[in-house]
Amino acid sequence: MSDIPAVNLEQVTKSFGRKQALAGLSLRVQPGEVHGFLGPNGAGKSTTLRILLGLLRHDAGTAQVLGKDPWADAVELHSRLAYVPGDVALWPNLTGGEAIDLFMRLRGSANPARRDELIERFDLDPRAKARTYSKGNRQKVALIAALASEVELLLLDEPTSGLDPLMEAQFQECISGVRQQGRSILLSSHILAQVEALADTVSIIRRGVVVESGSLEQLRHLASTSISLRLREPREVIEVLRGTPGVHDVHSREGMVRFSADQEHLPQIMQLISDWGVASLTATPPTLEQLLLRHYGEPGTTSAERK
Protein backbone atom coordinates (compact mmCIF):
# COMPACT_ATOMS: atom_id res chain seq x y z
CA MET A 1 0.00 0.00 0.00
CA SER A 2 1.45 3.32 -1.09
CA ASP A 3 1.50 6.53 0.90
CA ILE A 4 -0.56 8.49 -1.60
CA PRO A 5 -3.72 9.66 0.16
CA ALA A 6 -6.86 7.98 -1.10
CA VAL A 7 -8.54 11.35 -1.12
CA ASN A 8 -6.85 14.70 -0.93
CA LEU A 9 -8.86 17.90 -1.17
CA GLU A 10 -7.29 21.26 -0.46
CA GLN A 11 -9.22 24.51 -0.33
CA VAL A 12 -11.79 23.23 -2.81
CA THR A 13 -14.59 25.59 -3.76
CA LYS A 14 -17.70 24.95 -5.80
CA SER A 15 -20.60 27.26 -6.58
CA PHE A 16 -23.90 26.59 -8.29
CA GLY A 17 -24.82 29.90 -9.77
CA ARG A 18 -24.67 32.36 -6.89
CA LYS A 19 -24.96 29.67 -4.27
CA GLN A 20 -21.68 28.54 -2.78
CA ALA A 21 -21.76 24.86 -1.93
CA LEU A 22 -18.12 24.37 -0.94
CA ALA A 23 -16.12 27.24 0.51
CA GLY A 24 -12.54 26.07 0.68
CA LEU A 25 -13.00 22.51 1.81
CA SER A 26 -9.97 20.43 2.78
CA LEU A 27 -10.22 16.71 3.39
CA ARG A 28 -7.66 13.94 3.50
CA VAL A 29 -8.39 10.23 3.59
CA GLN A 30 -5.28 8.15 4.29
CA PRO A 31 -4.85 4.82 2.54
CA GLY A 32 -6.45 2.00 4.44
CA GLU A 33 -8.56 4.14 6.72
CA VAL A 34 -12.30 4.39 7.17
CA HIS A 35 -13.08 8.07 7.20
CA GLY A 36 -16.40 9.23 8.57
CA PHE A 37 -17.87 12.28 6.89
CA LEU A 38 -20.46 14.06 8.98
CA GLY A 39 -22.49 17.19 8.61
CA PRO A 40 -26.02 18.52 8.56
CA ASN A 41 -28.22 18.28 5.48
CA GLY A 42 -27.04 20.59 2.75
CA ALA A 43 -23.59 21.11 4.25
CA GLY A 44 -21.95 19.93 1.02
CA LYS A 45 -21.31 16.22 1.65
CA SER A 46 -22.87 15.00 -1.58
CA THR A 47 -21.29 17.81 -3.56
CA THR A 48 -17.89 16.75 -2.21
CA LEU A 49 -18.47 13.14 -3.20
CA ARG A 50 -19.68 14.13 -6.65
CA ILE A 51 -16.51 16.15 -7.16
CA LEU A 52 -14.46 13.14 -6.13
CA LEU A 53 -16.32 11.13 -8.77
CA GLY A 54 -15.76 13.68 -11.51
CA LEU A 55 -19.50 14.23 -11.85
CA LEU A 56 -18.98 17.87 -10.88
CA ARG A 57 -15.95 19.99 -11.63
CA HIS A 58 -14.60 22.04 -8.75
CA ASP A 59 -14.03 25.76 -9.25
CA ALA A 60 -10.78 26.24 -7.35
CA GLY A 61 -8.38 24.39 -5.07
CA THR A 62 -6.75 20.99 -5.48
CA ALA A 63 -8.62 17.73 -5.74
CA GLN A 64 -6.92 14.37 -5.98
CA VAL A 65 -8.29 10.85 -5.75
CA LEU A 66 -5.69 8.07 -5.46
CA GLY A 67 -3.19 10.65 -6.65
CA LYS A 68 -5.12 11.48 -9.82
CA ASP A 69 -7.35 14.28 -11.00
CA PRO A 70 -10.93 13.13 -10.45
CA TRP A 71 -12.22 15.14 -13.43
CA ALA A 72 -9.57 14.50 -16.07
CA ASP A 73 -8.80 10.91 -15.12
CA ALA A 74 -12.38 9.97 -14.20
CA VAL A 75 -12.70 6.83 -16.29
CA GLU A 76 -9.31 5.44 -15.28
CA LEU A 77 -10.01 6.19 -11.62
CA HIS A 78 -13.43 4.59 -11.70
CA SER A 79 -11.98 1.15 -12.21
CA ARG A 80 -10.22 1.63 -8.86
CA LEU A 81 -13.15 2.95 -6.85
CA ALA A 82 -16.80 2.15 -6.23
CA TYR A 83 -19.65 4.45 -5.28
CA VAL A 84 -22.95 3.99 -3.48
CA PRO A 85 -25.31 6.98 -3.66
CA GLY A 86 -27.78 7.71 -0.91
CA ASP A 87 -30.72 7.56 -3.29
CA VAL A 88 -30.23 4.82 -5.86
CA ALA A 89 -32.29 5.18 -9.05
CA LEU A 90 -32.58 2.04 -11.18
CA TRP A 91 -34.26 1.16 -14.46
CA PRO A 92 -37.80 0.01 -13.64
CA ASN A 93 -37.73 -2.78 -16.22
CA LEU A 94 -34.37 -4.30 -15.31
CA THR A 95 -34.14 -6.81 -12.48
CA GLY A 96 -31.87 -6.20 -9.51
CA GLY A 97 -29.60 -9.00 -10.68
CA GLU A 98 -29.23 -7.45 -14.11
CA ALA A 99 -28.39 -4.06 -12.62
CA ILE A 100 -25.75 -5.56 -10.29
CA ASP A 101 -24.11 -7.43 -13.18
CA LEU A 102 -24.20 -4.35 -15.36
CA PHE A 103 -22.54 -2.16 -12.72
CA MET A 104 -19.87 -4.75 -12.00
CA ARG A 105 -19.08 -5.31 -15.66
CA LEU A 106 -18.93 -1.61 -16.39
CA ARG A 107 -16.44 -1.24 -13.55
CA GLY A 108 -14.48 -4.15 -14.89
CA SER A 109 -13.46 -5.82 -11.64
CA ALA A 110 -16.20 -8.33 -11.10
CA ASN A 111 -16.08 -11.15 -8.60
CA PRO A 112 -19.13 -13.33 -9.35
CA ALA A 113 -18.73 -15.60 -6.33
CA ARG A 114 -18.59 -12.60 -4.00
CA ARG A 115 -21.67 -11.20 -5.77
CA ASP A 116 -23.74 -14.29 -5.02
CA GLU A 117 -22.51 -14.39 -1.44
CA LEU A 118 -23.52 -10.75 -0.92
CA ILE A 119 -26.93 -11.24 -2.50
CA GLU A 120 -27.48 -14.06 -0.04
CA ARG A 121 -26.13 -11.99 2.81
CA PHE A 122 -28.26 -8.93 2.15
CA ASP A 123 -31.28 -11.09 1.40
CA LEU A 124 -32.03 -9.50 -1.98
CA ASP A 125 -34.31 -11.09 -4.59
CA PRO A 126 -32.27 -10.57 -7.78
CA ARG A 127 -35.13 -11.69 -10.02
CA ALA A 128 -37.51 -8.89 -9.03
CA LYS A 129 -37.89 -5.90 -11.33
CA ALA A 130 -36.33 -2.76 -9.91
CA ARG A 131 -39.73 -1.05 -10.12
CA THR A 132 -40.91 -3.25 -7.24
CA TYR A 133 -37.93 -2.52 -5.00
CA SER A 134 -38.14 -0.36 -1.89
CA LYS A 135 -35.52 2.30 -1.24
CA GLY A 136 -33.59 -0.15 0.91
CA ASN A 137 -33.59 -2.81 -1.79
CA ARG A 138 -32.39 -0.34 -4.41
CA GLN A 139 -29.61 0.61 -2.06
CA LYS A 140 -28.69 -3.04 -1.62
CA VAL A 141 -28.24 -3.33 -5.39
CA ALA A 142 -25.68 -0.52 -5.40
CA LEU A 143 -24.04 -1.81 -2.21
CA ILE A 144 -23.65 -5.34 -3.53
CA ALA A 145 -22.21 -4.10 -6.81
CA ALA A 146 -19.75 -1.90 -4.92
CA LEU A 147 -18.73 -4.45 -2.29
CA ALA A 148 -18.29 -7.23 -4.87
CA SER A 149 -15.79 -5.12 -6.78
CA GLU A 150 -12.16 -5.39 -5.87
CA VAL A 151 -11.37 -1.70 -5.68
CA GLU A 152 -9.03 0.44 -3.60
CA LEU A 153 -11.51 3.08 -2.53
CA LEU A 154 -15.18 3.02 -1.61
CA LEU A 155 -17.15 6.27 -1.66
CA LEU A 156 -20.35 5.76 0.31
CA ASP A 157 -22.97 8.50 0.55
CA GLU A 158 -25.36 7.57 3.35
CA PRO A 159 -25.28 4.01 2.06
CA THR A 160 -27.61 2.48 4.64
CA SER A 161 -30.25 5.18 5.05
CA GLY A 162 -32.90 2.76 3.77
CA LEU A 163 -31.68 -0.43 5.45
CA ASP A 164 -33.16 -2.13 8.49
CA PRO A 165 -31.02 -2.75 11.63
CA LEU A 166 -30.33 -6.34 10.62
CA MET A 167 -28.98 -5.25 7.25
CA GLU A 168 -27.15 -2.41 8.95
CA ALA A 169 -25.28 -5.02 11.00
CA GLN A 170 -24.44 -6.96 7.84
CA PHE A 171 -23.20 -3.76 6.30
CA GLN A 172 -20.93 -2.97 9.24
CA GLU A 173 -19.51 -6.47 9.09
CA CYS A 174 -18.79 -6.11 5.38
CA ILE A 175 -17.11 -2.76 5.88
CA SER A 176 -14.92 -4.19 8.67
CA GLY A 177 -13.89 -6.90 6.22
CA VAL A 178 -13.08 -4.32 3.59
CA ARG A 179 -10.96 -2.38 6.06
CA GLN A 180 -9.02 -5.48 7.00
CA GLN A 181 -8.13 -5.87 3.34
CA GLY A 182 -6.50 -2.46 3.57
CA ARG A 183 -8.92 -0.59 1.34
CA SER A 184 -9.92 3.01 2.00
CA ILE A 185 -13.46 4.15 2.64
CA LEU A 186 -15.03 7.58 2.75
CA LEU A 187 -18.30 7.12 4.58
CA SER A 188 -20.80 9.94 4.65
CA SER A 189 -23.46 9.10 7.18
CA HIS A 190 -26.06 10.37 9.57
CA ILE A 191 -25.97 7.25 11.68
CA LEU A 192 -23.56 8.21 14.44
CA ALA A 193 -23.40 4.72 15.92
CA GLN A 194 -22.31 3.48 12.52
CA VAL A 195 -19.55 6.06 12.28
CA GLU A 196 -18.43 5.42 15.86
CA ALA A 197 -18.27 1.70 15.16
CA LEU A 198 -16.50 1.91 11.81
CA ALA A 199 -14.57 5.13 11.40
CA ASP A 200 -10.91 5.58 12.25
CA THR A 201 -11.09 9.28 11.55
CA VAL A 202 -13.91 11.72 11.27
CA SER A 203 -14.38 15.01 9.46
CA ILE A 204 -17.22 17.32 10.27
CA ILE A 205 -18.39 19.60 7.49
CA ARG A 206 -20.52 22.65 7.91
CA ARG A 207 -21.53 25.21 5.30
CA GLY A 208 -19.04 23.92 2.78
CA VAL A 209 -15.93 23.76 4.99
CA VAL A 210 -14.49 21.06 7.19
CA VAL A 211 -14.70 22.48 10.71
CA GLU A 212 -13.21 19.53 12.57
CA SER A 213 -11.08 16.62 11.50
CA GLY A 214 -9.18 13.93 13.31
CA SER A 215 -9.51 10.61 15.07
CA LEU A 216 -12.50 10.19 17.33
CA GLU A 217 -10.05 10.35 20.25
CA GLN A 218 -8.67 13.67 19.11
CA LEU A 219 -12.11 15.09 18.55
CA ARG A 220 -13.18 14.05 22.00
CA HIS A 221 -10.23 15.96 23.30
CA LEU A 222 -11.61 19.11 21.80
CA ALA A 223 -14.88 18.74 23.56
CA SER A 224 -15.54 18.73 27.27
CA THR A 225 -16.19 15.80 29.56
CA SER A 226 -19.41 15.79 31.56
CA ILE A 227 -18.79 15.22 35.22
CA SER A 228 -21.34 14.61 37.94
CA LEU A 229 -20.38 14.13 41.57
CA ARG A 230 -21.97 13.68 44.95
CA LEU A 231 -20.23 14.85 48.11
CA ARG A 232 -20.27 13.12 51.46
CA GLU A 233 -21.19 16.35 53.23
CA PRO A 234 -22.90 19.39 51.72
CA ARG A 235 -20.42 22.07 50.86
CA GLU A 236 -20.47 25.37 49.00
CA VAL A 237 -18.57 24.27 45.88
CA ILE A 238 -20.68 25.89 43.17
CA GLU A 239 -19.01 29.29 43.33
CA VAL A 240 -15.57 27.71 43.60
CA LEU A 241 -16.21 25.65 40.50
CA ARG A 242 -17.56 28.64 38.61
CA GLY A 243 -14.30 30.43 39.31
CA THR A 244 -12.16 27.53 38.12
CA PRO A 245 -10.71 27.72 34.59
CA GLY A 246 -11.98 25.06 32.18
CA VAL A 247 -15.27 24.49 33.96
CA HIS A 248 -18.65 25.26 32.37
CA ASP A 249 -22.36 24.79 32.93
CA VAL A 250 -22.20 24.26 36.66
CA HIS A 251 -25.47 23.40 38.35
CA SER A 252 -26.59 21.31 41.28
CA ARG A 253 -29.77 19.41 42.03
CA GLU A 254 -30.65 17.22 45.02
CA GLY A 255 -27.08 17.13 46.21
CA MET A 256 -25.72 16.18 42.79
CA VAL A 257 -23.31 18.61 41.19
CA ARG A 258 -22.92 18.54 37.43
CA PHE A 259 -20.56 20.43 35.16
CA SER A 260 -18.53 20.05 32.01
CA ALA A 261 -14.78 20.17 32.07
CA ASP A 262 -12.38 20.98 29.28
CA GLN A 263 -10.05 18.13 28.54
CA GLU A 264 -6.88 20.20 28.99
CA HIS A 265 -7.84 21.41 32.47
CA LEU A 266 -9.01 18.03 33.65
CA PRO A 267 -5.93 17.22 35.84
CA GLN A 268 -6.19 20.48 37.84
CA ILE A 269 -9.94 20.07 38.24
CA MET A 270 -9.59 16.54 39.54
CA GLN A 271 -6.94 17.75 41.97
CA LEU A 272 -9.34 20.35 43.29
CA ILE A 273 -12.22 17.93 43.69
CA SER A 274 -10.20 15.26 45.46
CA ASP A 275 -10.02 17.39 48.63
CA TRP A 276 -13.81 17.71 48.92
CA GLY A 277 -14.67 14.26 50.17
CA VAL A 278 -16.33 12.78 47.10
CA ALA A 279 -18.97 10.10 47.66
CA SER A 280 -19.42 9.22 43.95
CA LEU A 281 -18.14 10.56 40.66
CA THR A 282 -18.95 9.80 37.02
CA ALA A 283 -17.08 11.26 34.07
CA THR A 284 -18.59 10.74 30.63
CA PRO A 285 -16.49 11.44 27.55
CA PRO A 286 -18.36 13.42 24.90
CA THR A 287 -20.44 11.33 22.53
CA LEU A 288 -20.19 11.89 18.83
CA GLU A 289 -23.63 13.39 19.05
CA GLN A 290 -22.42 16.04 21.45
CA LEU A 291 -19.43 16.71 19.21
CA LEU A 292 -21.75 17.20 16.30
CA LEU A 293 -24.27 19.34 18.12
CA ARG A 294 -21.46 21.71 18.99
CA HIS A 295 -21.30 22.46 15.27
CA TYR A 296 -24.87 21.81 14.19
CA GLY A 297 -26.37 23.81 16.97
CA GLU A 298 -24.69 27.05 16.11
CA PRO A 299 -27.04 29.72 14.82
CA GLY A 300 -27.39 30.19 11.09
CA THR A 301 -27.20 26.48 10.30
CA THR A 302 -30.59 26.54 8.68
CA SER A 303 -29.78 29.30 6.23
CA ALA A 304 -29.55 28.42 2.56
CA GLU A 305 -27.12 25.52 2.51
CA ARG A 306 -28.28 23.18 -0.17
CA LYS A 307 -26.37 20.75 -2.32
Binding site: L94, G97, E98, I100, L102, R105, P126, K129
Partner: peptide, 23 residues
Protein backbone atom coordinates in the same frame (compact mmCIF):
# COMPACT_ATOMS: atom_id res chain seq x y z
CA UNK B 1 -48.53 -9.98 -10.88
CA UNK B 2 -45.08 -8.90 -11.97
CA UNK B 3 -43.32 -11.90 -13.37
CA UNK B 4 -39.87 -12.51 -11.90
CA UNK B 5 -37.14 -11.70 -14.37
CA UNK B 6 -33.56 -12.80 -14.82
CA UNK B 7 -31.39 -13.25 -11.76
CA UNK B 8 -28.32 -12.53 -13.90
CA UNK B 9 -27.81 -10.16 -16.78
CA UNK B 10 -27.39 -11.64 -20.23
CA UNK B 11 -23.75 -12.03 -21.13
CA UNK B 12 -23.91 -9.30 -23.77
CA UNK B 13 -25.20 -6.71 -21.31
CA UNK B 14 -21.75 -5.43 -20.44
CA UNK B 15 -21.27 -2.15 -22.30
CA UNK B 16 -23.05 1.21 -22.51
CA UNK B 17 -24.11 0.27 -26.05
CA UNK B 18 -25.71 -2.94 -24.84
CA UNK B 19 -27.50 -1.10 -22.07
CA UNK B 20 -29.10 1.30 -24.55
CA UNK B 21 -30.27 -1.64 -26.65
CA UNK B 22 -31.58 -3.41 -23.55
CA UNK B 23 -33.52 -0.30 -22.49
Amino acid sequence: ADRPGRARAARWLATPWALVVRL
